[in-house]
Design a protein around this nucleic acid. Structure first.
Ligand SMILES: [Mn+2]
Ligand SMILES: [Mn+2]
Ligand SMILES: [Zn+2]
Ligand SMILES: [Zn+2]
Lengths: 143, 143
DNA sequence: CTCGAAAATCAACTGAGTTGCAAGTATATT
DNA sequence: AATATACTTGCAACTCAGTTGATTTTCGAG
């Protein structure tokens, strides 16, 4: 996906050491074609090395706070994560009601909606999450 | 909010008995000016009567399945609920990053975006959730 | 090499939501 | 009314993604 990102350099810019676990998290998210759950990331890292889940959770939380990663609250209890590098601008997501799989959709222009979405005067709107729910083509074929 | 809803009648239409707990859930959601967490609903019911949390969770889950209530996954782990009666069409929500409070926004027209949001051909899009994150006017005044 | 800070680990915890089953209550049948 | 049946509620124990705090390991500066 984002072959153009130099993760070590990115970490340095953030003042973070390029540790193996941090790099693994970024590489896995960079290769993913969809947003991943923390547990999926953990399991993928474990195919290469021994890691504690707390380490991965803390790294994901830290990356999210720094804006390097986006945390998606698509359904209760399980968060999904995706890279928030310059090559992955924010975009809507599709989630299938049957298999719960998540797809990334193309970015959409919100120009005219943006003003309506601010809500009561005085609110500062920082970003907009769009989630589409339905039945994915795979589950549709099965039915 | 939805004084025009006859909850007993609505339950009858769904083939459900108008039990005190079901009515309490609907009345509380009907009076609410924002989406409520399950725990808030539980506490509000408990100001009137003794209830077990499982009962409330089961009722909320059932109402959600029937489309009488919308479950919002605004942030991990805690769901918010709101009435999905004819007087409350779907609409976007605003959540403050500081106080985590949720506001209901006015419905927006998605006509032109709807087609873009279907994703890969074959997907069936059923509904769209829009969440705006930012800083609410109250938290803004404090800073 | 030495030492302090950053990073990773471990075990124990949290808490929203769930499960299975027993007990209670309304409704239909006789 | 009495009984059978289905629906509803309660209770206790559980799940599991995520968190916390304390301890150990690793790394880089001096
Ligand atoms: Mn995405
Ligand atoms: Mn709302
Ligand atoms: Zn699917
Ligand atoms: Zn606020």
């Amino acid at each position: 996906m984002s072959d153009r990102c130099n993760f070590s350099h990115w970490l340095a810019l953030e003042g973070l050491r390029a540790t193996p676990v941090r790099l693994a998290v970024l590489e896995i998210l960079g290769e993913a074609l969809r947003a991943l759950r923390a547990q999926e990331i953990l399991e993928l890292i474990r195919t290469r090395r021994r890691v504690n889940k707390v380490t991965v959770y803390r790294i994901l939380e830290d990356f999210t706070r720094r804006g390097m990663v986006r945390k998606l609250s698509l359904e209760g209890r399980v968060n999904h994560f995706e890279l928030a590098c310059e090559h992955h601008p924010p975009h809507p997501h599709f989630q299938c009601q049957t298999c719960r799989e998540v797809q990334c959709l193309e970015p959409v222009a919100l120009n005219q909606m943006w003003t309506e979405l601010r809500g009561p005067v005085g609110n500062r709107a920082d970003h907009i999450d769009i989630k589409v729910e339905g039945l994915c083509h795979k589950c549709r074929d099965m039915a």
